[in-house]
Simulated assay, not measured.
Amino acid sequence: MLSSISSSESAKRAPVWALMSFVVTLLTVGLASELLIRSQVLPQDSFAQHRSILESVDTPDAAFGDSHTARGFAAGQGFVNLAFPSEGIAHMAWKTQMYFADRTPGRVILQADPHFFASYRLRRQFEAYSDPSPRLLYLADPRHRARLPGYWTRFVESGFKLDSKVVQTADGALLSPGDFAALSPRAQILEARKRAIVHQIGADERVQLAQQAYAGMVTSLTEQGAEVCMVSYPVTRAYRDAVGAAHQPMIDFFQGTALRNGSRYVDARSTVTDQSLFRDSDHLNAQGAAAFMDQLLSACFGERPS
């Protein structure tokens, strides 16, 4: 009888203990994640400096895009690089509207890469930059919360220390090391194929909406007097082979948009042939960005920097 009562009471307590264990685990993970952000991420967070540059510089010549521009356009020569990794068309449109709200645009470089229309990009919701004031919990910041799995993965893989090798220039570029040519030919092909799968173009209706937003951005800038140059950035031969002809409709869209707006379109995907100038299959490294700079400005604006 007593054994029966004891078993019954234990059964009743089991859900309570399970709930308490879950709460304790959740709090532990949360506190560990907050500590990771404060001790490892914030000291080398390039976003804070990026935001400061966006809000403080005053130059009419600017470049916008995602990591292809951030890492592939060395800036300087009168330009500021206002691109940031993982941002898409919505962020570009928002930034150009905000940045040129109180200044007349000059030479404007807009990234024109087909992967802007990849499924994962089209699913991503736009969020304007949040209030930069210090937070009680940085874990509550949507930007950090969304990147938390990546933080933990890199933290563990790097031996429990996050150490960014990215160099952020005063002009906003995020220049990276890396040598794609150091990989074996097989490894190059496999990496490029993985990227090509991620960059598969999304559903037609979402692509059309994104194209409308991009075209509207170009039209708005040209109407303000900007000299717009749309650029498809260099990628490796392995990446081009992996993508094949799948991205050609997006290239046609960029060409058509430039033609309708009297802008210039530069297809630079195959212009950098030295594979050691790439950090991975579709991003230039710091040396590649420096080597590409003069070529880009010449192709876009018919001039070479002095």
Rank of each mutant, 00 (worst) to 15 (best):
L2T: 09
S10C: 12
R13D: 15
S21L: 11
S21D: 14
V23D: 00
L27T: 15
L27E: 08
E34A: 03
S39N: 13
S39G: 05
S46K: 11
A48R: 03
H50Y: 11
R51V: 03
I53A: 11
E55W: 05
D58C: 10
T59S: 12
F64K: 00
D66H: 10
G72L: 06
F73V: 09
A74G: 06
F79M: 05
V80A: 03
F84E: 01
G88M: 01
G88S: 04
A90Q: 03
W94A: 12
D102N: 15
D102Q: 10
G106Q: 00
I109M: 03
Q111E: 09
S119M: 14
S119N: 07
Y120R: 08
Y120G: 06
L122S: 06
L122Q: 09
R124F: 11
F126V: 00
E127K: 06
S130N: 08
D131R: 08
D131P: 06
P132E: 05
L136T: 06
A140F: 15
D141V: 00
D141H: 09
R143F: 15
Y151V: 11
W152Q: 02
T153N: 13
R154G: 09
D163S: 05
S176P: 05
P177V: 07
D179P: 11
L183C: 02
S184T: 13
S184V: 12
P185M: 01
A187L: 12
A192D: 04
R193D: 04
K194F: 07
G202A: 09
D204E: 15
R206T: 15
V207D: 01
Q212C: 10
A213H: 15
G225W: 03
C229D: 08
M230C: 04
V231L: 10
R237Q: 15
V243H: 07
D252P: 02
F254A: 01
A258K: 04
L259Y: 10
V266M: 02
T273C: 02
Q275K: 13
S276F: 04
L277K: 10
N285C: 04
N285I: 07
A286V: 14
A290F: 11
D294S: 11
Q295S: 12
L297F: 10
L297G: 04
A299S: 10
C300W: 09
F301M: 03
E303C: 12
R304W: 14
S306V: 12
